[in-house]
């Protein structure tokens, strides 16, 4: 058994507005807002790294959960924009937390990585103990802020989110997950030579079919109707995509917490940043009813995770 014990987040201080990006990308600030729902995003400082952002989110999560790092059984860090190819950020995060023998694994999957890591953690927690999952990204170093790169530059921001998956107690119990991979469309979304390449039209086509399908598969498996879903925490890729997934899935849009207007698309960090803010807004109370997580990203990888009231 595994539970969502608590969340944490870290956002860099520097705010990058649409006006600032519009000037270098040769577009109108209003167009950025209408195309994406994004008003501003955060950029990491030069001295910050994917590992340092992840460590800050980890510490926030551990503090909120009143847990010492030494009590962790495992750390999993998801990032599509790691500082270097190998070793990935997980080992650096473990070191920064003062750990030198706790297993620390990387999930190098942009956008869907934190969902995959949560599913993995739910399987490990019963054996190794509390698992800290972190999604951390510095996507600003993977886009080109030029007219040629405008279609990705306007979307992405930096940040980190974290969740503690606990074997014995928490806000909600993880019931099940669906993880899927289809490498046949890998070329439409990839980071290669340190640059993000995205065929936006194809990505939306694929995401709009695959995300609702994964959510439906989980709901059908547990005989849960769309009306019974209390909250859907979805990868914050684009406001228009969230609105369309809500419509296709038959779940009311107001049940999808949205913060993309403040942070842009922070890739694999976005799911956990959104979860952390959602949980802060409800004062860390136990979940009543059903909670869905859903994400889609490079690979293609996509899926959903279902959690419900810890009492059931």
């Amino acid at each position: 058994m595994a539970f969502l014990r608590g969340f944490g987040k870290y956002l860099p201080e520097r705010v990058v507005t649409n006006d600032e990006l519009a000037a270098v990308c040769g577009v109108e600030a209003e167009w950025i807002l209408s195309a994406s729902g994004i008003r501003e995003r955060r950029y990491a400082a030069d001295a910050e790294t994917v590992a340092s952002l992840a460590t800050s989110a980890a510490n926030d999560c551990l503090t909120r959960c009143s847990l010492e790092a030494a009590e962790l059984g495992m750390i999993i860090v998801a990032s599509g924009s790691p500082d270097r190819y190998t070793p990935g950020p997980a080992a650096m995060v473990a070191q920064a937390l003062g750990l030198n023998s706790t297993p620390a694994l990387d999930v190098p999957v942009a956008s869907a990585g934190s969902l995959i890591a949560m599913a993995m953690a739910s399987q490990f927690a019963g054996t190794v103990g509390p698992v800290l999952v972190i999604g951390s990204e510095i996507m600003s170093r993977r886009v080109e802020r030029t007219p040629e790169g405008k279609n990705t530059a306007i979307l992405f921001g930096d940040g980190a989110g974290a969740v503690l998956i606990h074997p014995g107690e928490g806000l909600a119990r993880i019931l099940d997950h669906v993880l899927r991979t289809d490498g046949s469309a890998a070329e439409i979304l990839r980071i290669e030579d340190r640059h993000l390449h995205m065929d936006g039209g194809s990505v939306i086509l694929q995401a709009l079919r695959k995300i609702p399908a994964a959510m439906k598969e989980l709901m059908d498996r547990h005989s849960i109707s769309p009306e019974q879903i209390g909250t859907v925490i979805m990868h914050q890729a684009n406001l228009n995509l969230i609105q369309r997934v809500a419509k296709v899935s038959g779940i009311a849009l107001e049940r999808f917490p949205v913060n993309i207007d403040h942070y842009g698309n922070t890739s694999s960090a976005s799911l956990l940043i959104a979860a952390a803010e959602w949980n802060e807004g409800r004062n860390d109370l136990p979940v009543d009813g059903h909670l869905l997580f859903a994400a889609f990203g490079a690979g293609l990888n996509w899926g959903a995770l279902l959690a419900s009231s810890a009492k059931e």
Partner: peptide, 8 residues
């Protein structure tokens, strides 16, 4: 089919 979901 999903395999044909390409903007091109």
């Amino acid at each position: 089919p999903d395999s044909d979901l390409s903007a091109r």
